[in-house]
Design a protein around this nucleic acid. Structure first.
Lengths: 256, 256
DNA sequence: ACAGTATTTATCCAACGGGTTAATTTCTCC
DNA sequence: GGAGAAATTAACCCGTTGGATAAATACTGT
């Protein structure tokens, strides 16, 4: 239940929306809005932690970004570490929620895998903070995640989903191998995750802008082609079908 | 040229190796060893930066770990950022060096790809700091890397190597597709990198120890199978050949 | 309208952390 | 054997930062 209807107050000064109303309570300095405040704090914290990591994040900056007094962070959430964990849990909740919304049961196996890859790719593109947060959490060896019962109980629906898709694919003859769904899930995540999270260094090393529209399209086509080719064994067709729309652009990297 | 022959002095106190020698110069507090000092500083910095990231790293800890006075860091290398860049450059130099040592020209294409994957996997396993450093650098959008002419000029030999391997594979009929070598290189790195760098969170999420011997073997087999199956189109055989040694262990993850 | 509570602001502070200054010691070359 | 340079230590500086304390203000039920 969000208190979203409430007027939002920034840094102690009320936004005089209707002037009339504001004048009525003339000495109004600020309004209460605990739920809204909490949300703004978590949103600001998410930005800060994903932009600077756990150690690099600054509590004061979070407060400023949330339009709140620093004390509010401790009042509504807790100390820096608690704040960070809350953000992390929120991030997992969000992706798990979207994952559940994507039912692939009714698609034929290759199509289902393709859609799974596309979803993962687009989710990462739309939620770059998620990538940073995961990296940050891995830097501290999942210290916080281990403490979090909430996250531990949030299993991704994808593993079981992949298991049945693969089984159906094998039975129908579409797929030639019954790969371990966990391995496949990790591989799909890996292909998307690494490209995007290491985009900056890769772009420098290869001297290409890997986030350009064309580059992203090409990457998605490659990933889908790679995985489906491996599963179906029909490499040639799949790689071509997938990248069909493009009339074969010249390769930007030159060799000797 | 390392001054390695010199006696190493820790935190201002000489290690009295030969007692006789030490007594000869009785009031000896410490010895000079600029090259050794620099190496120890960089090694300590590498550990610190990879363990805690750039913002989380502590200059004092680096000094302590190097058995040096804090001032030495600034004297021999520079400020924190310079230190970090030096470490990063060193890491790139090291991997590029090993990459060059691995000539795959004389192997037949599938074997070459297999060896490439194995090398990447094992390098990451042997040099986990490299993974952290890359993540850290990406968190700051490759800020330092962009400033580094040294790294920018260190092209990985793999891209060109992959290009010729793929071409040979297509010509010989081993491979069914002429994938873009950059995409393939990124994909191989991704499969290895993500699994290892996100090991901690993945282990929590899946409730498995992904670094157990068996898990690692299984992962390597999966990656080789996936990539080679995609390239050759012979999914079934490859996945089985690759994981042949194992008599099909029971799956630890249970479903409904 | 008023008492009590929930929410928010205003200040403060002790520890930390990067970086610097100045003195000390060892080495090298004549 | 000693002067000058190179390497190293010791001590300090000061802005930052996470966190805490206490006072003020808005809301709620009666």
């Amino acid at each position: 239940m969000r208190g979203a209807a409430r007027m939002i107050v920034l840094s102690g000064r009320a936004i005089s929306a209707g002037t009339g109303l504001a004048k009525a309570k003339r000495n109004l300095k600020w309004q209460r809005d605990p739920e809204g405040m909490r949300l703004r704090i978590l949103e600001a914290a998410k930005q800060e932690f994903s932009a600077h990591g756990l150690a690099g994040a600054r509590v004061d900056r979070i407060a400023a970004k949330a339009g709140a007094n620093k004390r509010m962070l401790y009042y509504h959430v807790g100390k820096k570490d608690d704040l960070y964990l809350a953000v992390l849990e929120g991030a997992y909740e969000k992706i798990r929620g979207e994952e559940r919304g994507l039912d692939l049961e009714h698609l034929d196996p290759p199509e289902a895998i393709k859609r799974l890859i596309e979803f993962t790719w687009n989710y990462f593109l739309r939620n770059p903070e998620f990538l940073s947060l995961l990296q940050t959490e891995n830097l501290v060896r999942a210290k916080h995640l281990k403490r979090s019962n909430k996250v531990k109980s949030m299993h991704s629906p994808f593993v079981e989903m992949i298991r049945t898709v693969v089984r159906r694919g094998v039975e129908s003859g579409d797929f030639q191998v019954a790969v371990d769904p966990v391995q496949l899930y990790i591989s799909i995540a890996a292909l998307c995750f690494f490209y995007l999270s290491n985009c900056a260094t890769l772009s420098v090393v290869f001297g290409r802008d890997l986030l350009a529209k064309d580059a992203k399209d090409e990457r998605l086509a490659h990933m889908v082609g790679l995985v489906l080719a491996a599963l179906t064994g029909r490499s040639a067709e799949l790689f071509e079908i997938v990248k069909a729309p493009k009339p074969r652009a010249a390769q930007p990297v030159k060799m000797s």
